[in-house]
């Protein structure tokens, strides 16, 4: 990127322009968190259950957030820090956002990351990346409180089918995401297997000796085991 583009895309006015989008995400989460926490005890949850939820959610969130760091730095090179900050916090998905930047560049016929990036590219990227995520916000705004109806329609009117459909669909999604990491077979496949074996052993052990820390830390421990196994393999192969 040129010095001029860097100054433009990282200017104070861009930070101010991006602030409202991030602020509404935080504000919505704050309102829902406060209401949920206040009403949790009123409807019969214990304070321990609430604390356990908060703790486990925080622990489980940290790892995937760290993954986003290196990809976010790439996005910052194309969109500047302020807009990358907005994009990763507003219907953010790192893979989606990098695709969005690519589609914007392709749309106006320039090479992403090159000196061709200018104010016109930034405006195009701002519109394309924001516009592409509107579908999710609209679906959620329209149907979040009517998902039972949506699911019933998809289940052909049989409410007994709804949880079965949900389970099947979830298995399908995670099988597809996992298979993408297995084929073609590379080092990351060992991470998939290591994580899968670790959670199997933890789950079987937890069924016999239920422990609270397993439920709170289980996902994170298995992720770390998978990462560790892959890193050791790369060290042994001289990759790092």
């Amino acid at each position: 990127m040129t010095a001029e583009y860097k100054a433009l895309s990282n200017s104070m006015i861009m930070w101010i322009a991006c602030l409202p989008g991030v602020a509404i995400v935080i504000y919505q989460a704050y309102l829902i968190f406060k209401k949920s926490k206040d009403d949790a005890v009123r409807i019969g949850l214990s304070k321990n259950q609430v604390s356990a939820s908060i703790r486990s959610a925080a622990i489980t969130s940290i790892g995937p957030c760290l993954v986003m760091i290196t990809a976010m730095l790439a996005l910052m090179m194309y969109d500047g820090a302020p807009f990358a900050w907005l994009r990763t916090n507003f219907i953010g998905s790192i893979t989606y956002e990098l695709q969005g930047a690519q589609f914007a560049a392709d749309g106006i016929g320039i090479e992403l990351g090159s000196a061709q990036m200018d104010a016109n590219f930034l405006a195009t990227a701002c519109i394309v990346e924001a516009g592409g995520c509107v579908g999710w916000v609209i679906f959620s705004a329209l149907f979040s409180d009517r998902m039972e109806v949506v699911q019933e329609k998809l289940a052909g009117g049989n409410m007994n089918a709804v949880p079965i459909i949900g389970t099947g669909a979830l298995i399908g999604v995670y099988c597809s995401l996992t298979v993408d990491r297995l084929i073609p077979f590379k080092t990351q496949a060992f991470g998939v297997f290591a994580g899968a074996i670790a959670i199997t052993l933890l789950t079987l052990w937890d069924r016999k000796n239920p422990k609270q820390w397993v439920k709170e830390w289980g996902l994170t421990i298995c992720m770390i085991i998978g990462m560790f196994v892959c890193t050791v393999i790369d060290i042994m192969n001289g990759v790092i």
């Binding site: 790892g63 389970t167 995670y174 990491r181 998939v192 290591a194 199997t200 998978g226 990462m227 990759v239």
Partner: peptide
């Protein structure tokens, strides 16, 4: 370097949870 393998490990873990 290890961070590159976080998502595969996470997806493998979550997939196996569904399988179990």
């Amino acid at each position: 370097h290890a961070l590159n393998y976080l998502l595969p490990s996470l997806f493998g873990t979550m997939c196996m949870q569904r399988i179990l």
